[in-house]
């Protein structure tokens, strides 16, 4: 008798659970899809919708780079190479090259945290496709530029001041809204 009961129960269970599952899937037919039709059928580019902390392709603001080499040292895969040259006459130090190999970069964000001025930072850009791997090495120095020296008592040049402001703000946002948190305290 129990065998018959089991037999009937098997059938009813199958029918009811399939019925329930069909109801679930049917209900999804009338709901809104979740797809984002990247890249063209979206109201605004994905880059603009990403949070500020998003770790995209690295960018460097050479105007406020102090050449402290903290980023080069902290990078676990050495994808940053910086060349600095001191001129014999004027003792002026200039960058000869500042290259970041996007192929190697693993977007860990350690360099951006180590930077004292916030000149190296992650952008919201993530589309880096190109036909040649060599094109993925970003050269930030095309002609020798002098190093930035932070002035005591704040920046006077308005354009530079704006850039310094952006860098510091980035450091703040990237790290923590609350004082005491984030990478700022990591300097031991």
């Amino acid at each position: 008798m129990s065998a018959v009961g089991e037999y009937v129960r098997d059938i009813t269970e199958t029918v009811t659970t399939v019925f329930e599952g069909m109801a679930v899937t049917f209900s999804h037919l009338v709901r809104r899809p979740m797809t984002i039709q990247y890249p063209d059928r979206i109201p605004k580019p994905v880059q603009e919708t990403l949070p500020l902390r998003y770790r995209g392709i690295l960018e460097v603001d050479m105007d406020i780079c102090t050449g402290c080499l903290a980023c080069e040292r902290v990078c676990p895969i050495s994808c940053i190479t910086i060349g600095i040259e001191t001129s014999k006459e004027t003792k002026q130090r200039t960058f000869t090259h500042f290259d970041i190999d996007i192929c190697k970069c693993m977007y860990c964000g350690l360099c951006a945290e180590a930077c004292p001025t916030g000149s190296i930072r992650h952008s919201q850009e993530f589309e880096g496709a190109c036909y040649n791997p060599a094109g993925l090495v970003r050269h930030f120095v095309t002609e020798p530029v002098p190093l930035y020296k932070p002035k005591k008592g704040g920046e006077t040049d308005p354009t530079l001041a704006e850039k310094v402001e952006t860098g510091l703000k980035y450091l703040d946002e990237f790290a923590s809204p609350e004082k005491g948190g984030g990478a700022g305290t990591e300097e031991g």
Binding site: F19, M22, A23, V24
Partner: peptide
């Protein structure tokens, strides 16, 4: 009965949360 279940499903677990609310 089926339609009733469907409306139950929609009411019960509506994905209201769209972190990126566009199609």
């Amino acid at each position: 009965l089926f339609l009733k279940r469907v409306s139950f499903q929609i009411r019960h677990a509506r994905p209201v949360l769209y972190l990126k609310p566009y199609i």
